[in-house]
């Protein structure tokens, strides 16, 4: 997912308000960093096409709102980067503590827990003998 600086700022803005049209967004950002209404409209359109904003037409103007919460958006990004790249054609730039694509079921996880308990018992017995 490629997001420009302004796109990130606009997205952050929509996580603080429920909905806004291009004029309201422009008004907010013109105080902070300037820029034309046209730039804001293009940015909103890009974010909409990327699926990050929803929009509905009220009168002549589009009213935009965030498609997902900030937390859900970050979760989606994490999922994208932690997906097992070798099987999903995705990421290899990271080393995850545990792979989210692990396919162990509850029974296999319980077996692993037993293995750890056995190891602890073995160590305890060896420790008391020595």
């Amino acid at each position: 997912m490629i997001l420009g600086e302004l796109e990130k700022l606009v997205l952050n803005y929509f996580w603080t308000v429920s909905s806004a049209d291009a004029k309201q967004v422009h008004e907010y950002f013109s105080k902070q960093r300037g820029g034309s209404l046209n730039t804001i409209q293009t940015t909103l359109d890009r974010l909409f096409k990327k699926g990050l904003l929803n929009r509905i037409k009220i009168g002549h103007a589009f009213h935009y709102s965030a498609a997902s919460s900030r937390k859900a958006f970050i979760s989606q990004l994490i999922l994208t980067v932690t997906q097992d790249f070798v099987s999903s054609d995705e990421d290899n730039l990271l080393a995850a503590f545990v792979s989210v694509s692990s396919e162990l079921d509850d029974q296999q996880l319980s077996e692993l827990e037993s293995t750890i308990r056995e190891y602890e018992t073995r160590n305890l017995v060896q420790g008391s003998k020595s």
Partner: peptide, 14 residues
């Protein structure tokens, strides 16, 4: 830290 409901830990970046 990433503020999210998803539990994960990883190293990323070249």
């Amino acid at each position: 830290i990433l503020d999210t409901n998803t539990a994960a830990a990883f190293t990323a970046g070249i």
